[in-house]
């Protein structure tokens, strides 16, 4: 979570127009879902991964870790799609007799599952591309441009800030406890953890009150106006977006 945020603020595309990044990502996403072709999905996965690894320069290990996270949901889901009961012996790829039933994977189910897996993976890569290249401030800009209700956008922005404050507060309480052997034994740890939670609640409450005072002192009246930011369009990036669309559409003409 925090690494992701760090990369979002420190990468080669951080100053690129957020609209360009969003259009690129949602075009990739849309085309993969629209064509629903393995070739298109594969091309998108490859393209996005190459970009993320070699252009945005995210370390391979971190990227793989990010991809592995949703796999826990993805694999069982695809497996459930692939499994057939009872399976037709003539189209079956794999047959598992379970008692009186014949459980197995049919070729139709298999191709459906592979398609699903690749599509999901492509969608993941696209969203990670956005998450890894776009600082939160730009996401806020996108949300505002998407005409979401201001209250929703403000809430998201405040939540973002508060996550870090909460984390820093918890960290400082934890350190304060640990230096005084608060976590030296299991019994101590349990007690300390309890008071950490209580302290966190109290401090969060106090901080939110103080923050409110801080806002009031700057003439806060219930809304968070923001400065419009103007980002520069880059013809090179748009060319790349067009190239990607052409590539993906072309890939849709092939199939395995």
């Amino acid at each position: 979570m925090f690494m992701l945020d760090w990369y979002a603020h420190n990468n080669r595309l951080k100053d690129a127009h957020p609209g360009e990044k969003a259009v690129f990502v949602f075009l990739c996403l849309g085309l993969c879902l629209f064509f629903s072709r393995e070739t298109v999905s594969l091309a998108a996965i490859l393209l996005l991964s190459i970009l993320i690894l070699f252009y945005v320069k995210i370390p391979l290990g971190f990227y793989l870790k990010l991809l592995c996270l949703p796999f826990a949901f993805l694999l069982p889901g695809c497996l459930a799609v692939a499994l057939e009961l009872p399976v037709m012996p003539e189209t079956a790829v794999l047959i598992l007799p379970v008692g009186p039933f014949t459980l197995g994977i049919g070729s139709a189910g298999l191709s459906l599952a592979v398609n699903l897996l690749l599509r999901s993976l492509a969608a993941l890569c696209a969203l990670y591309f956005l998450a890894l290249t776009t600082p939160f401030d730009q996401l806020g800009w996108l949300l505002r441009r998407a005409k979401l209700p201001p209250a929703v956008v403000e809430l998201t922005a405040l939540t973002y800030r508060f996550i870090f404050i909460l984390y820093a507060t918890a960290q400082s309480i934890y350190t304060a406890q640990a230096t005084r052997l608060g976590y030296a034994s299991r019994c101590n740890a349990l007690k300390s953890l309890g008071s950490l939670a209580a302290g966190l609640l109290y401090k969060s409450f106090y901080r939110s009150q103080m923050m409110h005072a801080g806002l009031l002192s700057r003439c806060y009246e219930g809304t968070f106006p923001t400065l419009k930011t103007y980002y520069a369009f880059s013809p090179r990036n748009w060319l790349f977006v067009c190239g990607t669309v052409v590539l993906l559409v072309a890939m849709a003409q092939f199939s395995f």
Binding site: P135, D137, G140, R161, R207, M211, G214, L227
Partner: peptide
């Protein structure tokens, strides 16, 4: 200063 800063960027 921690309690005074709420926005997601310095500029805002």
């Amino acid at each position: 200063p921690e309690i005074q800063l709420f926005a997601s960027s310095v500029r805002q």
